[in-house]
Design a protein around this nucleic acid. Structure first.
Length: 506
RNA sequence: GCCUCCAUGGUCAAGCGGUUAAGACGUUGCCCUCUCAAGGCAAAAUCAUGGGUUCGAUUCCCAUUGGAGGUGCCA
């Protein structure tokens, strides 16, 4: 019989959803959907100290914005709930005690302080610290139960065999195996009664009938221990898919001052590190706020560390991805997040928008600096759409329309058309009366009349049009030529700016 | 230190024993052009190193080097 595929994204609510997490969520979603299975969201909040208020809601929101709809989860329900681990707190001890009875775990009364001390000593000697199973050997179960009943604090530890091998099979990395002697007896149930990740993930994945476990490679070295747990319970372990981290290229920074650390020559030092909010790397939310499109982010993130088989196509919607996703195409090494390529993807997605969709998306940004009642937004958007990489650039691209910027006469210099401030003055004086004559202030009329007049001036097109554009915009680069800009400014404002420019050149 | 994993241009990557080693971003040049974009054309740039195996290694094996992760009553 064919088992239904069930995957789960299991973040802990310690902050925003970073791009590495988003990619894990995406692949997890794709894996389920390509098999027609279920995608589940589970909140792993067993570390109450690290929990950030509001983080859970932020996760729901980001998942929704990304379009990663989960079939089961805390806010959507499902047959395997609750989907928040603290709401499952009563489930874990039962299983832990079952494991104790089976010999796969034991109670431990050693205090954190004495263990920390041991760890420090071992570290000082350059050794790897492991718990010495003192409580396994010295405290019989009956005594343990007595001490617990008397109120003594305790934890439950996994009883890892001292010899032999432990391993697991990964869809990407194949069979991974380690000596049990290198494994530590991890805490399964903490003194506060809550499970650690090490235990909760195994119990919940089993109880929730998860078939494919996707997670970061930071779990690669502890996965053998989890399989030991499955074995001890007599459960069927899931299929694993460990995903490499997403990195960012950066410079070496001081952790506290957040200033670059310079080498002896005063240069910054390049480093590759994990994406981190602390160093200002953008989260999914941040990118959306900056005017990146979710489709572009998803598309880019999908291709970060994964490539589809047998095609050079780079543009994929979420539905396309469901169809083409194949976990064997995931790269095994960490990949570096490249902002330039994301921006390129974003620009491409913007160019592919319908003009209407573009106008809707661009208007709030344009309205920050322009009055929609005074500027032809429809025409402006036509000019802007092909030039927009990220929406947040928009205000800076059009603010000159609202207010004439100060500019230096050097701007009139253009090497290619051999334009100088002197020629500029000549050009402006030539074009001014022509423009004054024009009453039908449309791009077409402006273009036809001015272009027809230029040959008589003895100047080249560029020698007239470059200065004109500079004179009325004050910018070396504008989202259109002189006629477009003149049209957008309107007759009165254009002539006003032109007069001012001529006066300034005098 | 120990354990696990990884290694193709600056970045993302295709490749799965025989290839002129794809493609994309970025970079540079040219064309187009009233600026900037976009578009078109072209260029530079990669198999970490050393040993094997093989008629033949980017591809398989080992070592070295480099990178990532783990070594928590964090996840």
């Amino acid at each position: 019989m064919n088992q239904e595929v069930r995957t789960r994204f299991a973040p802990s609510p310690t902050g925003y959803l970073h791009l590495g997490g988003l990619r894990t969520a995406l692949y997890t979603y794709l894996l389920a959907k390509k098999h027609g299975g279920k995608f589940i969201l589970r909140i792993e909040d067993t570390d109450q100290e690290r929990e950030v208020p509001g983080a859970v809601e932020l996760i729901y929101k980001s998942m929704r914005q990304a379009g990663l709809a989960y079939d089961e989860g805390p806010d959507v329900g499902g047959d395997y709930g609750p989907y928040i681990q603290t709401q499952r707190r009563d489930i874990y001890p039962k299983y832990a005690w079952d494991l104790v009875e089976r010999g796969g775990a034991y109670c431990c009364f050693c205090t954190k302080e004495e263990l920390d001390e041991q760890r420090r000593e071992a570290e000082a000697k350059g050794e790897t610290w492991k718990y010495n199973k003192k409580c396994l050997h010295n405290v019989p179960l009956a005594e343990a139960k007595r001490r617990i009943a008397a109120g003594e604090p305790y934890v439950i530890r996994q009883n890892v065999p001292t010899e032999g091998k432990a391993g697991f099979d990964d869809l990407l990395y194949g069979h991974v195996e380690v000596d049990c002697s290198t494994l530590d007896d991890n805490v399964l149930i903490k003194a506060d009664g809550l499970p650690t990740y090490n235990f909760a993930n195994v119990v919940d994945d089993h109880l929730m009938a998860i078939t494919h476990v996707t997670r970061g490679t930071e779990y690669l070295s502890s996965a053998p221990k989890y399989n030991l747990l499955y074995e001890a319970f007599g459960w069927q372990p899931p299929l694993y898919l460990h995903l490499p981290a997403v990195m960012v290229e950066s410079v070496l920074m001081d952790k506290t001052t957040r200033q670059p650390i310079l080498d002896e020559n005063g240069n910054t030092q390049p480093v590759v590190r994990k994406l981190s909010k602390r160093y200002g790397d953008p989260s999914f939310e941040d990118l959306l706020e900056q005017g990146y499109l979710k489709e572009a982010i998803i598309n880019f993130i999908a291709l970060l560390g994964w490539a589809p088989k047998g095609t050079n196509e780079e543009f994929f919607s979420l539905d396309d991805l469901v169809r083409v996703f194949d976990e064997s195409g995931v790269n095994k090494s960490p990949s570096i997040f490249n902002m330039e390529k994301l921006t390129w993807f974003n620009a491409e997605y913007i160019r592919r928008m319908t003009p209407d969709a573009y106008r809707v998306a661009a208007t709030p940004w344009l309205s920050r600096v322009l009055d929609p009642a005074r500027t032809d937004f429809a025409r402006l958007c036509e000019l802007l759409q092909g030039r927009t990489e990220v929406f947040s650039q928009l205000p800076g691209m059009v603010d000159f329309l609202a207010e004439m910027p100060e500019f230096s006469p050097d701007l009139y210099v253009n090497k290619k058309s051999k334009t100088t401030p002197e020629i500029a003055k000549q050009a402006l004086l030539f074009v001014q009366p022509i423009l004054k004559e024009i009453t039908d202030w449309t791009e077409g009329t402006l273009h036809d009349i001015v272009m027809a007049a230029i040959p008589a001036s003895g100047m080249k097109n560029g020698q007239v049009l470059w200065p004109l554009r500079i004179a009325i915009t004050g910018r070396a680069a504008t989202p259109g030529g002189a006629f477009e800009m003149a049209y957008l400014l309107g007759r009165e404002e254009t002539l006003r700016r032109l007069q001012k420019a001529i006066d300034d050149l005098a």
